[in-house]
Amino acid sequence: MTALVECLSHTPLVGHVDPQQAVLDEVAAVISAARERVAQFQPDLVVLFSPDHYNGFFYDVMPSFCIGMAAHAIGDFGTLAGALSVPQTLAESCATAVLEQGVDAAVSYRMQLDHGAAQPLELLFGGLREVPVIPVFINSVATPLPSFQRARLLGAAIGRWAREQNLRVLFLGSGGLSHQPPVPELAQVEGLMADRLKGSGRYLPADEREARTQRVILAAQRFVHDQNSLHPLNPEWDQQFLDTLSRGELAAFDSLSNAELSAVAGKSTHEVKTWVAAFAALQAFGPYQCSGRYYREIPEWIAGFGALSAQPCAAGL
Rank of each mutant, 00 (worst) to 15 (best):
V189T: 13
Q40F: 05
W161R: 04
D243I: 04
I74T: 11
D104K: 14
A315R: 01
E236V: 15
A117E: 00
V38W: 10
L13V: 06
Q311K: 13
G155D: 02
L245V: 07
L99M: 12
I138S: 05
L233H: 00
M62G: 04
V183G: 05
H10Y: 11
S200M: 09
C313H: 02
Q221L: 11
L172E: 01
M111S: 06
L145A: 09
E100C: 09
P132S: 08
Q221R: 14
F285S: 07
R168T: 01
D238M: 02
Q149W: 03
A280V: 07
V183Q: 10
F49C: 08
H115P: 09
T11L: 11
E185K: 15
P87F: 05
P287Y: 01
A278Y: 04
L172F: 10
A33W: 08
G306Y: 11
Q221G: 13
S50M: 10
L308G: 09
S257Y: 09
A33P: 00
A277E: 07
G102L: 11
L154N: 07
G126S: 08
L99S: 12
G56S: 04
R152S: 07
P205E: 09
K273Q: 14
T11E: 12
F137S: 02
E130F: 00
R168S: 13
G116W: 07
R222D: 14
A71N: 03
G286K: 05
R163V: 09
G199S: 11
L250P: 02
Y59K: 05
L317A: 08
E164Y: 09
H225M: 13
R152L: 09
A303C: 13
A280M: 11
L99N: 09
A157G: 03
A263Y: 07
W275H: 10
F41C: 06
L242M: 14
F65S: 09
P181I: 00
C94T: 08
E36L: 13
V17W: 01
A284V: 03
S108N: 05
L308C: 08
S147D: 03
Y109G: 14
V103Q: 12
R150T: 05
I74G: 03
Q240R: 14
Q112P: 00
G266N: 08
R212G: 10
V136M: 10
V107W: 06
S85W: 12
V103S: 13
A307W: 01
L90Q: 14
L250V: 04
V47D: 06
L80N: 05
P205Y: 10
H72L: 09
H231Y: 02
A211S: 08
F49M: 13
A206R: 12
P299Q: 05
L124D: 00
S257M: 04
D238W: 02
L154P: 03
E208L: 13
D60R: 10
F305G: 03
A187C: 11
A22Y: 07
Y54P: 00
D76N: 14
P135M: 02
A117L: 04
H179S: 04
A22H: 14
S262I: 01
L24S: 06
V98M: 08
Q180W: 12
F148L: 02
R247E: 12
H10W: 11
R35T: 06
Y288A: 02
V86E: 02
H179M: 03
R202Y: 11
